[in-house]
Design a protein around this nucleic acid. Structure first.
Lengths: 202, 202
DNA sequence: CAGCATTGTTGGCGGCGCCTACATTCGGCG
DNA sequence: CGCCGAATGTAGGCGCCGCCAACAATGCTG
């Protein structure tokens, strides 16, 4: 709980930018869609004037972009924390997949923002860098496996793409409500297995 | 079909509903985002009053839902037209994947609407049915391959999920601009190959 | 402590979604 | 054939929004 200022709220908020991002994320989670997110409402909630947010984000899209970057940061943290280089490939991938899927389900609205196809050229750079960081965990797992001979030869980037696509696709299905959380999570081990061993009979 | 009135526009438009959907799709394609789509502007473009669209779609979301259904219809057509049951599994999947990817790239904005996670319970039913139809092509290919022994045993639905996830994930990456169209298309054969033969060395 | 950049406020403009009341047209039924 | 209700379109308005400009309070630095 925030210790409430008893008397007069100070003219300057202190950290309005962070407060806006935080409130925006909360609202996004509740409402479910970024369209129904209003700068004026955020300002009202935080007790500042309706134009104050404009000092920190040049327009609404700028706030959404910043929010997406926050999402990428958090996702990278989750993946890096979950990754265990000591595990054998199958277990390592399963763990990573579970972590990604979990994050996707818990942050569906944020994810939609992160993958939104509408960032301006400047923001796009930051996004690309952020994406690379999140894909990094997967790439490392694939590269390590390749060195150990656990995995077929070939461009590691392409192999990562295969795994990444499958994961992202599953997460996308889960998030759009085609599955329950449990069903999606339950599908992970089988998915990883089929990725490793293929669909053709051996 | 409406023979165009040359002179005075008739009080009734004739087929405003279709005209709205068509104009909305065009605008969506140009603007790239459904947020910047305005019922009033559509009405203006079509030369009707700002409240006329309300007679055909109870609110903006209803129009977007209808647009998504149009998208599913068209996607199912594309997939069904592309599918060739005579092909061997690998070629058949590659063909289907190319068709899906092509549709996704050419209709990125529409796809975003189709997979949007915000349809009301009633619309959700129609969506689910539409999705089943589009996944149908994939399911048939997998089932046929299983009967011919070209594919490993197991729940065919789960196998379809593996292929579908990978495809959808790739399309998602392509659409969000992580690849050029050519790069994405070029990745398809390799993706299908890895799906069939797995990442573990044989 | 003076001056300037930063951050917040007030007010306003045009546009939007949605609602209601009213007008015109269409189509089915006596 | 003519009438009347249903369907469709119009006019106006309310409250919200994003964004902008002008002004006020504060913080920071020389």
């Amino acid at each position: 709980m925030p210790a409430e200022k008893p008397e007069t709220r100070p003219y300057h908020h202190g950290d309005l930018r962070s407060a806006l991002l935080e409130a925006a994320e909360r609202t996004l989670r509740d409402r479910g869609t970024s369209a129904s997110l209003s700068l004026r409402e955020l300002a009202r909630d935080l007790g500042v004037s309706h134009a104050a947010p404009g000092r920190h984000f040049k327009d609404k899209q700028a706030l959404l972009n910043a929010l997406a970057l926050v999402g990428y940061d958090r996702m990278a943290e989750v993946l890096e924390a979950a990754d265990d280089p000591g595990l054998a490939l199958q277990d390592r991938l399963t763990t990573l997949a579970r972590a990604y899927l979990g994050f996707a389900i818990d942050n569906a609205e944020l994810l939609e923002l992160m993958y939104a196809r509408k960032h301006e050229p400047d923001a796009a750079e930051q996004m690309a860098a952020a994406i690379d960081r999140t894909v990094g965990a997967l790439e490392r797992a694939v590269a390590a496996a390749q060195q150990r001979g656990e995995i077929v030869d070939g461009d590691p980037e392409h192999l990562t793409l295969v795994v990444g696509s499958a994961l992202h696709g599953l997460a996308s299905f889960a998030v759009t409500g085609k599955f329950t959380t449990e069903a999606a999570m339950g599908a992970v081990p089988g998915l990883v297995h089929h990725l490793l061993y293929g669909l053709k009979p051996r």
